[in-house]
Amino acid sequence: MPDRRQLTRRAALGLVAGGGLLATSETLGFSNVTADRGVSIETADDANALLGFTNYEDSSKIPTFTNNADSSMSVTLDSERSVKFDIGTDGTYVTPPTTFSLAVDESKETNIRFTGECNDAGSAAVSTDATLDDGTTTIGSISFTRDWQIPASGQVRFNGSAGTAGASGKYEFDLENTGCEDVTFVGIGIKETTTDADYVSGGGSLFDASGTELVSDHISIDSSNPDSDTRRDLDPNVTLSVNDTITWTFEKFQRSSNGKANVDMRSQDVKIRLYLSDGSMTTEKLCLDGCDF
């Protein structure tokens, strides 16, 4: 009989660092981890497990993976449902199976979008398979399946497209709801552009097609840190019904240097984050020049 002992999570991490091969079973938080020496390792809940995984049951938050081990990981997501994943929430949705890497202590947010029949939305079983390596050798593996809640932002297939732009800094774009349910937008931010603009302003920042002001404050932009954005709440909120399209215009992209000069937005791309009334959010790309972010 192999010697089966209970180890702390710290000991488990030490085993990984020492080259012990780990394989986890299908339990919450990967609480049963079997090593090559027949050692049973007790870890904590999903947030503190070797591969931490949180927020998948709360549609108002973004599912997040965290590498709590002492070795890098390669993580593969797959599902039998009709879904796509946005790894790192950069607005690029890919069809599973899809693989991404996690360095030690690194976290990655991952949005899910449902692409199947509308009467079949709600949640999706997603399998996660991770391998741990020390740079040259695979030293462990983690496998589990969780039911991900699909938020409103994941049940709407937005068709975001840039319309017209000008040298004055204006930027018009459309949002089309080709998804499964009506959604209400409550906020917006700008994550990145292909220009040196660092804010949107000009006597109101965002307007709809009728000229109604939706955002009055300036919207800050830091394209050097595209993982972040400055949220501005919409007033009034805007509901986009299924199969409808809305047109919005950023009034003036500007740079604070050189006397608040307007930025020429012709042939430029913009990445925005939309905030929805259920607490979820989505990143969308507005492309006039290929969106090579």
Rank of each mutant, 00 (worst) to 15 (best):
T110D: 08
R266C: 06
T137H: 09
S256R: 13
N32V: 04
A261Q: 14
D196L: 02
T136N: 12
I221Q: 03
E109S: 02
L240Q: 10
F250V: 01
Y275F: 15
S205M: 12
G154K: 10
V16D: 04
G19M: 11
H218S: 11
T43P: 02
T247N: 14
V126Y: 10
S79P: 01
A162L: 00
T131M: 09
R10T: 05
T245I: 03
G116Q: 09
T249A: 09
E251L: 05
E172Y: 03
V183Y: 09
N237D: 09
G202Y: 08
T145D: 03
S71T: 11
S72I: 04
N48Y: 12
A121N: 05
T145Y: 01
K191N: 15
D217L: 11
I246R: 13
F293G: 14
E192Q: 15
T194R: 09
S280E: 00
D3T: 12
T138E: 12
E284P: 13
S31F: 03
R157E: 15
L102M: 04
F253Q: 08
D133P: 03
D147G: 00
D90P: 03
S224Q: 10
I188M: 12
F158G: 09
E106T: 05
T66P: 02
E213V: 11
N243P: 01
V200F: 07
F293V: 14
Q268V: 03
I219L: 01
L102C: 00
L21W: 12
A49Q: 10
A121T: 12
G38T: 13
I41V: 15
E57I: 08
D70A: 13
S107K: 06
T136R: 13
R4G: 04
T89V: 10
E42H: 07
A152L: 09
K61E: 14
N68D: 02
E172H: 08
A11R: 13
R266G: 05
L132M: 15
M1H: 07
S71Q: 13
E284S: 10
F144E: 10
S257E: 11
D70M: 13
T164R: 10
R157M: 14
T131F: 07
S60E: 01
D229W: 13
C287S: 15
A167E: 15
A69D: 04
S228I: 04
T145R: 04
H218Y: 11
A125C: 06
Q149Y: 04
Y275H: 10
T230W: 00
R232S: 07
H218K: 08
A124M: 09
V200I: 15
N237S: 15
R4W: 07
G160V: 11
Y171G: 08
S82M: 06
T76F: 02
T92V: 14
I150M: 06
A197H: 14
T24N: 06
Q6G: 05
F53P: 06
P96Q: 05
G122M: 08
G279R: 12
G163Q: 14
G91K: 07
F85R: 09
L28S: 09
D196E: 02
F253Y: 14
T8H: 02
